[in-house]
Design a protein around this nucleic acid. Structure first.
Lengths: 192, 192, 192, 192
DNA sequence: AATGAATGAGCATTCATTCAT
DNA sequence: GATGAATGAATGCTCATTCAT
């Protein structure tokens, strides 16, 4: 099992350093300090170990930051909190997020994974928007599903632009603007 | 020159069918009905012929749609027109846009190309937003540059979601929601 | 015919610049300012045009320097004159001689050519040595044929060492030493 | 290591049979009875394995023939012994010497190698000639360095002529004539 | 005779995967 | 389980040669 862990850790390093395509299985084994053949005791292919890397990171991201919704009730503050959390997490794992973006363009399996993740986000937000519309706090003309997807995409794409492509925008500038855009877009009154 | 055209046409076919990575140069030659060596009379590498495909499509996109801004003055209508035009164009070339997205994750040269294109869009919109802020028609709290990038990203990402990932959203639903989100986000009053 | 001449001249340039192996037929045509296909109107292959280059140089070497033995009778002076002439000619055409050396290692046809040339030289010298032995002026213990070959090889190899490999030896130093070595080797008395 | 040895042995065979240029790496692998890819476990290129072949032969040539100078003091005998030893060794490895000659005309790396070897020989002989001149046993008019190079070249070139080009000269005839030519050339008196 | 685009055989090289130890 | 040498399929690229114009 130590070998397996070493391989996953090494794989993350190598993937982040060389990119998915240029990462050779022999490089991963070498970085893990094991023989090239040992790779196949635990994984069958490059995409399988990549999945393991992603899985490991997902666990890391969940464990220490299990923020149960801390009783925030104001929708504006709720949105702001969610955006900040997402952006912090993205920044923390920027290299891996870049990698995921890359791999999802190369391997269909991961394209599906990313898609599902986006949909999950979307659904959660859809529910929120719909509820707020029913409460009369949000522009009733907006289609909740399309709106949820669009705003989520806006945030994730900006995270990519700033943290991966290194567009020179400060973190606070980014969060602040995205929050305002969400609020405005939904016509969430500050009075809310 | 007939050979060159045949190669570019064949390349587009093969790229759209197999993806950039799986497209073999020999396949392109074969699809063009020329000898494998003929490829190298016109191109030096796969990315060079891909650039030619992109260039050709860009020309196609410019020619018949040279819409000089037809005297639209209302910012809401201006935004709506731009969104519609962009989405129509994206839908028309969806396969190629998907390809560009893929290749820009694989080849740094195209990553740069896409980045520059995004920046150009962004700058145009930044200027518009700044002007509208000065006229008092747009939320003055928004940072023009971050806002422009965010909203552009929102639109292009939704185009990808709908036309490439085939998320089931109708064209009118999409344009309509994106327009509203732009207007709301900027706090552009319907009154103009 | 102008095309043929242009090709031969261009071939010499290209061969001397790039070496036999790296010289491409298309380069020769380009250097001659003719289409690549035109090469085949006059030559069938690289070694054929190389033969033409060699032939042309051979003609150049004969024409202006037709030194009939100008009544030299002293064997020592005869040898000295032959050595000097050979070395001057070698120096004048050093690049081509290097090329010949190279090509004779690559193409059997030219190996045979060089061999025959060496034999011709050898035979002339064999006759001379035999005659001098009969006159009692040369060491009678020496085998005329082996001696002739050995001394010829000594001179031609030193020409290569000095004019091609650029070993730092002055021309006069070279001629002088080789002359003495010939004379000594044959035990040709200065008294004549 | 068995594979490496098999490759070097096979390479020597293939090189001697086909010549350096026509030897394909796949042929060498095939002759060694290993997969084509295995070649690259041990060598990076054709010239690298050629260097290994040369190295191996050099070792073979050194081991069994470590002739410490057996107290020969007479310069004539010393020269005779050196010539005989050189010619025997050349004859024993004639095919490889021919190959070296060929490759040194093709690959600059080996040209340099051959040149250095010739210089080493030359320097040893230069020292000997200078010493004999000081002792008054050798013609003082000869330049020691040019003489050493010339006589060395004479011997090595004759070895090539006889053992590679198969000029019909018996071994004893060859050694004997070359010895006399050395002695005469230096004016080394039989009296010692 | 001249052109030069088109041809396609030929070979080096990489690297995921296997398997005897 | 671990090893790592051996495997061999797969493909890009060059360039001498042809031939329709």
């Amino acid at each position: 099992m130590r070998t397996r862990s070493a391989l996953v850790a090494a794989a993350r390093e190598v993937f982040e350093r060389d990119g998915y395509l240029d990462a050779r299985i022999s490089d991963i084994s070498k970085a893990a300090g094991v023989a090239s053949g040992s790779f196949y005791t635990y994984f069958d292919s490059k995409d399988e170990i990549f999945a393991a890397v992603v899985e490991q990171v997902r666990e890391e991201m969940l464990h220490p930051h299990v923020r149960q919704r801390t009783g925030i009730d104001d929708p504006r503050q709720l949105i702001a909190a969610a955006n900040r959390e997402y952006l912090l997490s993205y920044r923390r794992n920027a290299r891996l997020m870049a990698l995921l973006e890359q791999v999802s363009q190369i391997d269909e399996k991961f394209q599906a994974m990313r898609y599902e993740r986006a949909m999950a986000f979307g659904e959660r937000n859809t529910a929120m928007i719909r509820e707020l519309q029913e409460r009369g706090e949000v522009d009733p003309e907006l289609d909740p599903w399309v709106t949820a997807l669009a705003l989520s995409n806006m945030v994730s794409r900006m995270a990519y632009t700033v943290f991966v492509q290194r567009e020179k925008i400060t973190f606070e500038q980014l969060v602040d603007t995205l929050n305002r855009l969400w609020w405005n877009a939904l016509r969430l009154d500050p009075a809310g």
